[in-house]
Simulated scan of single mutants.
Amino acid sequence: METASTFKALVVEKTPEKEFVREIRERSIDDLPAGDLVVRVHYSSLNYKDALSATGHPGVTRQFPHTPGIDAAGEVVSCESGAFAPGDKVIVTGYDLGMETDGGWGQYIRIPAEWAVRLPEGLSLREGMALGTAGFTAALSVLKLERAGVAPDAGEILVTGATGGVGSIAVAILAAAGYTVVASTGKEADEEYLRDLGAARVVSRDEVTAGAEKALLAERWAGAVDVVGGQTLAAVLKSTKYGGTVTCCGLVGSPELPVNVYPFILRGVSLLGIDSVQCPRDIREAVWQRLAAGWKPDRLDEMVTECTLPGLEVMIQTILHGGITGRVVVNLRES
């Protein structure tokens, strides 16, 4: 596949006044970072981490100018290592993509070949980005619950922050796998959306956190997928049943965890961390295979809002203010 000499990308620049401005620019392939794999990006996505990078959050990106986008799906243009052939379709998530390495909000990326995973059969490039890091993280969470012995007949599984990207897909995957899912959200208007994804019940965020200051709460959940952190995660741990498992993969509420040891030493509750960035390749490939088959949400397309590069500015502000439901796919072919 022939490589264009220039391409469009959204570039974030830091001004002398230490402000961050975003604009779509024509970039040169020669300006991309070192790597043995060049991919023509067809689709990317918008994650909360991307919005932080786009607004100059130092915990995500420190070097500017920079192109965000922690997800990318497209076709291989060239691969010096021989791991892929021109025309192969690949998905790239995690590692340093979109953080300090120019990411998927550009029509081309150049990366180490080991960052890419071959697109599994049963999944299109667009579906790969409808899932993206959010779907991969949700699937990792379900995999860890499964491997911890949390079976579908164990009881209710709680998903917090359920209208977000990770939460929405976690609800859909768990329901498809036969679990009884309780979705927690602060957005009452989205109850029908969550039930359509497979939630058996929808509860308010306040109901989950009620009494969180207590040492322990009544046992409710056989397991949970938490994407909120903070007081919400503490309350979930305190209300998880004996021997239950909670996965932790987010901090939209807070990175702090105000909890005592009682859930762990009195009820044997397990708290499992989920990292989608440095996840080993064998697990990464296995998760994507499952997402292409039995774990692919039936209503995946209904969870997606699509935009092009020019439409990202509005979407960035919306996700930062908690206004996104489901997933945002960025179409680089139309940009």
Rank of each mutant, 00 (worst) to 15 (best):
V261F: 09
V208H: 13
D190A: 14
A199N: 09
V166G: 04
L143G: 01
K296T: 03
R126E: 15
A222N: 12
E19L: 07
A215C: 01
W288H: 08
V252Q: 08
P280A: 00
E188P: 15
P112A: 07
G167S: 11
V228S: 11
P310S: 04
F20Q: 04
A222D: 11
T180N: 09
T185W: 15
I274A: 00
G155S: 07
G149P: 14
A199Q: 12
K89I: 01
S141C: 05
E2N: 06
Q317G: 15
T101D: 01
R281T: 05
G122A: 08
R27M: 15
M303E: 07
P263T: 02
V90M: 09
V329P: 11
V21A: 02
A224L: 06
A116T: 09
V225K: 12
G178R: 11
E100P: 01
P33G: 03
T101C: 04
G323R: 15
C279T: 14
P297T: 04
L272W: 03
L10F: 02
I274K: 02
D88I: 08
F7N: 00
A162P: 05
D30H: 05
L266G: 04
A177M: 08
N331V: 04
D275N: 14
E26P: 05
A172E: 10
E121T: 12
S254P: 11
T232K: 06
E334H: 05
D226V: 04
S168V: 07
I265G: 01
L237M: 07
K296R: 14
R147W: 08
W221T: 04
T318Q: 15
K18D: 14
L145F: 14
S204Q: 10
T318L: 14
R126C: 01
T163F: 15
P297M: 07
N331P: 13
G94C: 13
G82R: 10
G59R: 05
A286Y: 09
L194F: 12
V12M: 03
T245N: 03
M315Q: 15
D36S: 02
K14V: 03
G122N: 10
V259T: 08
Y43D: 10
P280T: 00
L119F: 05
A9T: 01
E23S: 07
A83N: 02
K144G: 01
T325I: 08
I91K: 12
A212R: 10
V225E: 12
M315P: 10
I109W: 00
R205V: 04
E146A: 02
D206H: 13
G223R: 13
L266V: 08
A224Q: 08
K241R: 15
V314K: 15
K241P: 08
E306A: 10
F7A: 00
A234L: 09
T245F: 06
R40H: 03
A234K: 10
R327V: 06
I70R: 02
Y95E: 10
G229M: 05
V76T: 01
V208I: 13
